[in-house]
Amino acid sequence: MSDDHGSSLISARVRHVEALLESRGLLDAGEIDTRIDEFAAGGTPANGARVVARAWVDDGFRDRLLADANAALPEVGLSMAGGLQEQRLKVVANGPDEHHVLVCTLCSCYPIALLGPSPSWYKSEAYRSRVVRDPRSVLAEFGLDLPAGTRIEVWDASAESRYMVLPRRPEGTEGLTEDQLAGLVTRKGLIGTAAV
C-alpha cells in the first residue's frame, strides 16, 4: 500500500522508535534482530503438511490429532508453543460430505507458531467479510467448486483457539511415501480454500 517514499518514511519512524525504546531500557540491543531471525526459523506450511501426511498414513495419529491436536503434535516433533504463549490447536477434518474453511473475522488470528505468517488474502477485509456469509462462492473463486451436497463449515478464530484443516487424501496416492504425500499439501489446503 505504501509507495517508496511512504515506505522509507515509516521505515525511519520504526527505527527511531526502536532506538527510543532501547534508550529507555524497554528493548535490548539486538533483540529485534534476534526475534526476526527466530520467527524466520519458526512456523511454516511445511509443518502443517507433515502433520497431514502423518494423519493420512496413520489412523491412530489421525484420531489423536482430531481429539487433542496439542497432545498429538509432539509425535511429529512439533508444538504450538512457539508464539507469545502456547495456543490450543483444533484440527478439523474434511470428509466426503463436509468441507471446513478458516477465517478470523475480527482480526487475523492464524496458527502462526505452526504455519508461519498467513497470506495477505487471509488478512484482507475482502476474504474475512465474505467467507463467513457466502463460503461457497468464495471457495469457487479460489477454484474450489464443491458439490451442492457438500456441507461447508466455517470456523471463525474469534478467541484463543487456532485451527487447521485436515484435507482429504487425494485418490491414487496409495503408492506415495509420507514425504511425498506431505509435498502435495498446500497452505490453502490447510486453511480450506483448496482441496489439498
Binding site: 477465517v103 473475522t105 495477505s120 477485509e125 475482502a126 467479510s129 465474505r130 473463486e141 479460489f142
Partner: peptide, 18 residues
C-alpha cells in the same frame, strides 16, 4: 475491524509466491 458478513469490499486477490 468487525467485518464478518459485511458487503462492499473489493475482490479477493491472491499474491503468488508472497
Amino acid at each position: 475491524n468487525d467485518v464478518g458478513g459485511m458487503a462492499g469490499f473489493p475482490a479477493i486477490v491472491e499474491e503468488p509466491d508472497e
